[in-house]
Design a protein around this nucleic acid. Structure first.
Length: 204
DNA sequence: AAGAGGATGCCCT
DNA sequence: GGGCATCCTCTTC
């Protein structure tokens, strides 16, 4: 597939993970995990996880275990991990130095390969539940632990800028989902949603 | 070596 | 709106 809109590496070499969380809204996430099966959608919801000082981050307090290792790599790769035993969650690692920043992709609006995604999700027709929610979209896009460490400049998973930029007042900011254990950091407004988009995730 | 718990979704009321 | 499925990773004994 021709990729003239591919996001360059510089986009991911950014230490301001809150900025990246917002800038990823409107970008288009693609996968071709199975050769010939291209699926993709516009990112409409993200959450930023800010390095070692963010209690909600897997890398809080400098924790560097095997699972978290992708976060400590140079920006531009995927951090995929298993949640609740069966849900794969996709993060975009972003940093210039060795700072474990990551942005969780929480929802996309389906655009390409919609029938494939419907099949993978076992649904009958297109509805917001197809890709609204971090585990729903990974299933629709066929993302699993095999994509952990994968480069966003590679053939299996990549992000494009198709010109869907949005203004600051079109971004809804709120608390992150499911991080009650994070004490005061649970209240940080690091969840970003595209205003009036029906494909954002339902919780909260 | 074992146990707890988690950045969730689904199906049932 | 609540309970459960299900399993890997990390922490602690």
């Amino acid at each position: 597939m021709e990729k003239k809109f591919l996001l360059p590496l510089e986009f991911y070499l950014e230490n301001d993970v809150v900025k990246v969380g917002k800038d990823l809204l409107g970008k288009v996430l693609f996968t071709e995990i199975v050769p010939g099966e291209i699926t993709g959608g516009m990112i409409v919801e993200t959450e930023s996880y800010a390095g070692i000082h963010d209690r909600a981050s897997h890398a809080f307090n400098g924790r560097r275990t095997k699972r978290v290792e992708p976060m400590y790599q140079k920006g531009g790769i995927a951090y995929v991990y298993l949640c609740y035993g069966f849900h794969h969650l996709l993060n975009v690692v972003t940093n210039r130095e060795e700072i474990p920043h990551a942005v969780l992709i929480r929802a996309i609006e389906p655009l390409y390969g919609i029938d494939l995604m419907i099949n993978r999700r076992g649904q009958k027709s297109l509805s917001p539940s197809l890709t609204a929610g971090p585990a729903s979209l990974t299933k629709a896009l066929h993302i699993t632990l095999k994509e952990n460490f994968a480069s966003f400049l590679g053939k299996k998973i990549w992000i494009e800028d198709r010109g869907f930029s949005l203004k600051e007042n079109e971004i809804i900011k709120s608390q992150r989902v499911g991080v009650h254990y994070a004490k005061e950091d649970a209240f940080l407004p690091y969840r970003f949603r595209m205003k009036d988009n029906p494909y954002t995730s339902p919780a909260n």
